[in-house]
């Protein structure tokens, strides 16, 4: 075990959380990420029992998840495994695939609400994506305030916005400001 201590993408020792009316925003610092790309002509593996999803879709299986990022490319997630060498674990599950460690390339903000409507109102302030195409199990990569982000609809009432780690502060600002303005 290293004796160095990590900081979150927002530069703090603990993940940041905030509540704005119906919406809660929380930084998911424990999410491990690794990219998986198929080699030419390779058949898709099923790492951790995940059936790699179709275009613009996301799947989960226990602590693991996968979302489509491009043709023959996915991002594989693992809840709570950020401190492990997740890329190595994934490589073991997907032999021969191009696997790249991505955990620290991103910051994930989980947004939750009791109902779907506030999430969709928030999305309308942030991304130019029709909420009707972003139901549970859907994901999209798009622009948000000039930043490139993945938006995952984890469920009717939960949303994840995954952006570049170096932009965590700007992304938090954009999300929290939009959420605050929807408060009343």
């Amino acid at each position: 075990m290293t004796d160095l201590f990590p900081v979150t993408a927002l530069g703090d020792s603990a993940p940041r959380n905030a509540r704005f009316g119906a919406l809660t925003l929380s930084e998911n610092a424990g999410l491990a990420l690794a990219s998986l790309a198929l080699r030419k002509g390779q058949a898709a593996p099923a790492p951790f029992g995940l059936a790699l999803p179709e275009v613009a879709r996301a799947v989960t299986s226990g602590p693991h998840g996968a979302f489509w990022t491009g043709r023959g490319q996915w991002m594989i997630e693992a809840e709570g495994l950020a401190e492990t060498d997740f890329a190595a674990a994934l490589q073991g599950q997907a032999p021969g695939c191009a696997v790249t460690e991505q955990t620290d390339g991103w910051v994930a903000f989980e947004i939750a609400s009791d109902t779907g409507a506030p999430l969709e109102a928030l999305l309308a302030r942030l991304v130019n994506i029709d909420p009707r195409t972003l139901g549970p199990g859907c994901c999209v990569r798009t622009g948000l305030e000039h930043m490139s982000v993945f938006v995952l609809r984890r469920s009717e009432t939960r949303l994840a916005v995954i952006g570049m780690r170096s932009l965590a502060g700007s992304l938090w600002h954009a999300l929290s400001q939009a959420a605050r303005r929807l408060e009343d």
């Binding site: 990022t69 491009g70 043709r71 490319q73 990569r141 798009t142 622009g143 490139s148």
Partner: peptide
């Protein structure tokens, strides 16, 4: 051409295609 043109676009804020 003033008319039909085949051109390249890059989906930078998308799937990078």
């Amino acid at each position: 051409p003033a008319g039909v043109h085949r051109e390249l676009w890059y989906h930078e804020q998308g799937d990078r295609s």
